[in-house]
């Protein structure tokens, strides 16, 4: 590693003016190729060696990173066995698992549940998070610091403990088991105000002079929010929507606790989790992989498309300067 690092550095400043370091601010283009790229004529032999070395590392990493995913995809085409077998390549390839998945299991219900939950969470959570972060970022009022510290402290409590109470309350309201998706969305959305940090970081970077100008022109605070700041906040809105939408796809702890054993109320994670129990795993292992592929494809595509906004979201507050 150390040698690696050294080489990288040497290369970096060999011709700094063509280096990728200075680029348009992260807001516009977080991941772009180095902008004006001249052809470097005299790459030294040492540097070439370093590059080769890096390529080897990167290729190795790619293999390690992709291997499990490729395996999952291959497993999903296995026909001859539904259990975990010791070899990778199926003796017989086919779409049997996909057909079984959509015809003979509750998977379509789970997928629909999760999708609807994702949409609902995305809408409401975005509203809540934006309200919270905007207020904490742009407005100065009594109790603001207290509120922020209070939420910081709240976040240190292990959340699992609250599930017991939440379940009882939701059960009293009649939104558990079959109707678990409603209860789950309620829980996700209600406590989402605590996750304001990242979008607050974003709002912090929008100059307050904009607000002041608008205020001088007679805009109310609501108008400042709605007409000035919100149109500028596209990246963070997309980031929040993306994160909120993806959350129900991965949640199995709370979802399992609220939905219990009621199949129609489960999300994909909980439903597929039940396939891995000792009695089920031998007949459902390849189905699990198939389900994994089906869930992963839309989420991954969505994520990769909106990756730019994700990067802006996570780095936005930290990088601007």
């Amino acid at each position: 590693m150390e040698r690696e690092e050294l080489n990288v550095v040497e290369n970096q400043s060999a011709t700094p003016e063509t280096e990728a370091i200075v680029l348009p601010p992260i807001v516009e283009a977080p991941i772009v190729e180095p902008a004006p790229k001249k052809k470097h004529m005299g790459l030294s032999a040492k540097s070439k060696l370093a590059n080769t070395f890096i390529y080897i590392v990167l290729v190795l990493m790619t293999i390690v990173w992709l291997f499990p995913f490729v395996c999952i995809i291959i497993e999903s085409f296995r026909v001859e066995s539904t259990a975990q077998v010791g070899y990778l390549f199926p003796k017989e390839w086919g779409f049997d698992n996909y057909i079984t998945l959509f015809r003979d299991t509750d998977f379509p219900t789970w997928l629909l549940n999760t999708f609807v939950m994702g949409l609902a969470t995305a809408v409401f959570q975005t509203i809540i998070v934006l309200c919270m972060s905007y207020t904490l970022s742009r407005m100065r009022f009594k109790g603001r610091k207290f509120l922020m510290n209070f939420m910081l402290i709240l976040g240190m409590f292990p959340g699992f403990l609250t599930m017991i109470l939440l379940y009882k309350v939701l059960a009293d309201l009649g939104i558990t088991e079959e109707r678990a998706p409603i209860g789950l969305v309620l829980v996700y959305v209600a406590s989402s105000g605590m996750g304001y940090y990242i979008s607050k970081g974003f709002f912090d970077t929008i100059p307050t002079s904009l607000d002041e100008a608008a205020r001088v022109d007679g805009a109310t605070r609501f108008q400042v929010f709605y007409k000035v700041i919100l149109p500028l906040s596209k990246p963070i809105v997309i980031y929040t929507v993306l994160m909120a939408f993806m959350a129900p796809f991965g949640d199995f702890v709370l979802a399992r606790f609220i939905a219990r054993a009621a199949d129609p109320g489960q999300n994909v994670a909980v439903g597929m989790w039940s396939w891995l129990e000792k009695t089920m795993i031998n007949s459902h292992y390849t189905l699990f992989c198939t389900g994994g592929v089906v869930v992963a494809i839309p989420v991954t595509v969505l994520f990769l498309c909106l990756q730019k906004y994700y990067v802006e979201g996570v780095t936005g507050g930290a990088v601007k300067g």
Binding site: V8, N11, Q12, T15, T18, E19, A20, I31, E33, P34, H40, L43, S47, A50, N51, I54, Y55, L58, M61, T62, W65, L66, P68, F69, I72, M246, F249, G250, F252, A269, M272, W273, G292, V295, A296, V299, T300, F303, L304, Q307, Y310
Partner: peptide, 26 residues
């Protein structure tokens, strides 16, 4: 990000897959 490394976007995308794919699957 080192200068001279090609298809940067590809390398990044490969790595980012572990974020995108739900953890309970991977």
């Amino acid at each position: 990000n080192k200068k001279g490394i090609k298809i940067k976007k590809f390398w990044r995308t490969v790595l980012v897959l572990t974020i995108a794919i739900p953890q309970f699957v991977s």
